[in-house]
Design a binder for these strands. Structure first.
Length: 719
DNA sequence: GTTCTAGAAC
DNA sequence: GTTCTAGAAC
């Protein structure tokens, strides 16, 4: 909450009573968010007469109906008492009837949103005993999750005069202080309070899960575009907003086009005219790009084009969450500015050639040879006013480092006599061509959004942004990181084939790059090389693979199918030449899964690889989806099998055959993702709670797992 | 990969 | 007080 939360003391001119107007405060929050506590605290300290209207207790101490709540509310307001509506009120419809009290009794209606992390709410519900709502124990998580999925944050347009958002316990305490200090005649300022904090310590996954609408959206829905209050922070409002939306990570599903101002640099197009055209074209397209966003990017903080565009966009009331300006290097938006833009526009030259300086040189430079090659495949030249979208190959650093999937080349009109096709001062043609260029650019982007939407719900079910093709960059990072690992002398490993590993791992000289395994990580490698010497756990020895029971199974059935090829340490080492061995591993895994299914038809199996295994030697996990095991002890155990870190064998094989290498999701963030049930996707505060939930959860598996034979179940009519 | 354990969280 | 997590050591 901000400093402007001050209570306005109305003037008291002898007739103080006239100013006494009751107030309706609608609390909004999941079970466990602290609504009842909020009421208790406010009522304990307040001098204003309050009535708490609690649906959980309204029926003689037992749960009642919404109608009863409304009846008590009316009587209390008639008596001149203010009311606290203590029920979840999570969606607009639930709140509507209480907001109507505004007209009937001429009162102000406020909302206090207890928007605390799901994890915290669940944890409180699970722990409390004897709560009035009787929502305790194991069911709590499921209920809270279900309710939060329906959550719709309140807006002023619903009829509220004031909305206070609380995202953490400090916010809640401040809101308690504010309302607790409210005497009968005090009035609070209207508007929205409690902007989302930049450093709110909420897990990213939870943020995503809460589907939080950003504070500026709320404001924008009722007011005009918020203007930055001081000159030095001109861009910061937008910068922060973007960082939060993208979370400086790849878990960002909002398709975003970053584009430079076309023609205003080297082509010397008039900036005033250009800004007009940008804003008009944006206005035309902003509603045609689905949930996509458009971002005008410029390198310099003092950019005139950005400030002109910004003020014109504000005047036109263009939604600031759909279109905004950003200061930064267009080739480093994610890594340097925390803004993930899956598509960037290039102010290209007519030959679509790299070099030449400016944005064009920077983009071609950052994207590497791949962009040049991909561009040439599409077109040899570009006419002024036209744009062409080029999908960026996964091998491009711009793809792996910045998450850019497409570059759209645009050619604007040229007003510079030193450059080709100069229009001299013909701004009639110039404006037409520039408008055409932006239209073509946005049209191309809209088309990318449409196709990406169609194919995107195949991923991890909570809607995480596809985290594809980070392999190159990450593997390199990893190698750097692990360089400090203690090298294990071959003499310590009685089963190794001396001297061969270094040469075979990647064919490079210089040793240490490949020696990134600790001594404890060699067990599988030893077994793969000499399975006959390790009979413990080994259940099948074939020419290409060894099958063994995992020593620390994380489920009722948990096998490892280990490749026997020397130098094939992990998924990152896999190339097209390994397709046969991967298929063998898969087939052997499936065979064993079917064997177990014969014994126990209730099992469900999943086959896959860890993106970054702890044990050396490529191994396929064949694991039953009950995760019923005393060895499953921590978050990493869970997330290594239940996040994008786990790569399904079928997908790995498909990716290698189609693209030559598999996607590797080895980012640490997958290990710290919140704990979610692998069936119903409900969130749980800790491992014990998750484990007790999964023993009872009977929900079907998420749709993405049911596709493409990612799960193996008992087939009734097997021929 | 696991075990151990300090200390955070409850 | 107990439970749980997370980092270091192996």
């Amino acid at each position: 909450m901000e400093v402007d939360d001050e209570i306005i003391k109305p003037k008291v001119d002898g007739e103080e009573k006239d100013n006494r107007k009751p107030l309706v405060v609608i609390l909004v929050g999941a079970p466990g968010s602290g609504k009842s506590t909020f009421c208790d605290h406010v009522m304990r300290v307040s001098t204003r007469p309050w009535v708490r209207v609690c649906q959980d207790t309204i029926g003689n101490g037992k749960a009642g109906t919404k109608a009863q709540c409304l009846a008590i509310s009316s009587t209390s307001l008639k008596d001149g008492k203010s009311i606290l509506i203590d029920r979840c009120n999570l969606d607009k419809e639930q709140r509507a009837d209480f907001i109507k009290l505004k007209e009937s009794y001429q009162v102000d209606v406020h909302a206090v949103v207890l928007d605390l992390p799901a994890k915290l709410c669940i944890s409180r519900c699970v722990n409390r005993t004897g709560h009035e709502g009787n929502l305790q124990g194991g069911k709590a998580a499921a209920v809270v999750n279900r309710m939060l999925q329906k959550k719709e944050l309140p807006k002023l347009s619903e009829g509220f005069t004031r909305i206070t958002f609380c995202q953490n316990e400090n916010d809640v305490q401040e809101a308690i202080n504010t309302y607790g200090a409210l005497s009968s005649s005090d009035v609070l300022p209207s508007g929205i309070f409690g902007e989302k904090k930049k450093d709110t310590k909420v897990q990213l996954g939870i943020m995503k899960f809460l589907k939080r609408v950003d504070a500026p959206t709320k404001v924008a829905s009722d007011k005009t575009i918020p203007e930055p209050s001081n000159e030095t922070t001109k861009e910061s409002h937008h910068v922060n907003e973007c960082q939060e939306q993208s979370g400086t990570n790849t878990l960002d599903t909002v398709p975003t086009l970053a584009f430079p101002s076309i023609s205003t640099a080297d082509f010397q197009f008039n900036i005033e005219k250009a800004s007009e055209i940008i804003v008009e074209t944006v206005e035309e397209f902003v509603n045609k790009i689905g949930n996509g966003r458009l971002v005008l990017v410029d390198l310099s903080h003092g950019s005139k084009i950005l400030s002109l565009v910004k003020s014109k966009a504000a005047k036109k009331n263009i939604d600031p969450t759909k279109f905004f300006t950003f200061v930064g290097d267009i080739t480093k938006l994610r890594s340097g500015g925390g803004l993930h833009c899956n598509v960037i526009a290039n102010a290209a030259n007519w030959r679509l050639k790299p070099g030449g300086g400016g944005v064009n040189a920077a983009i071609f430079d950052a994207a590497g040879q791949d962009l040049d090659t991909a561009t040439k495949k599409r077109a040899g030249s570009l006419a002024p006013g036209k744009a062409i979208a080029v999908p960026l190959p996964s091998t491009s650093p711009l793809f792996s480092k910045e998450g850019v999937t497409h570059v759209i080349h645009v050619l604007g009109p040229n007003m510079n006599p030193k450059r080709p096709n100069c229009l001299k001062d013909d701004y009639n043609t110039g404006c037409k061509v520039l408008r055409e260029a932006y239209s073509s650019l946005f049209e191309n982007f809209a088309s990318i959004v449409r196709t990406q939407v169609k194919s995107s719900d195949h991923e991890f079910s909570n809607g995480d942004q596809k985290v594809r093709r980070e392999d190159g960059a990450h593997v390199n990072e990893k190698n750097k990181k692990f360089k400090g690992f203690i090298e294990v002398p071959e003499s310590n490993n009685p089963y190794s084939v001396d001297g061969k590993q270094d040469a075979t791992s990647s064919g490079k000289t210089g040793g240490s790059v490949n020696k990134d395994w600790g001594s404890w990580a060699q067990a599988l490698h030893k077994i793969a090389m000499h399975p006959e010497k390790h009979q413990n756990g080994v259940i099948e020895i074939l020419d290409d693979v060894v099958v063994l029971n995992d020593v620390y199974p994380k489920a009722q059935k948990h096998l490892l199918v280990v490749a026997r090829a020397e130098g094939l340490d992990r998924l990152a080492d896999v190339t097209q030449e390994h397709l046969p061995i991967l298929r063998t591993m898969h087939d052997v895994g499936v065979k064993w899964a079917r064997t177990f299914l014969e014994e126990n038809q209730s099992l469900v199996f999943r086959l896959g690889y860890h993106s970054a295994p702890s044990m050396r030697q490529l191994h396929l996990h064949v694991i039953s989806q009950d995760f019923d095991s005393k060895h499953l002890k921590n978050k990493k155990h869970w997330n290594s099998f239940n996040s994008p870190f786990f790569r399904d064998s079928v997908d790995v094989i498909q990716e290698i055959s189609e693209e030559g290498k598999p996607t590797i999701n080895d980012d640490e963030k997958f290990m710290s993702m919140e704990l979610r049930c692998n069936r119903c996707k409900s969130a749980h505060p800790n491992i014990p709670k998750l484990k007790s939930h999964i023993t009872i959860c009977k929900s079907p598996f998420p749709a993405n797992l049911l596709e493409n034979e990612r799960l193996l179940k008992k087939v009734d009519n097997a021929c």
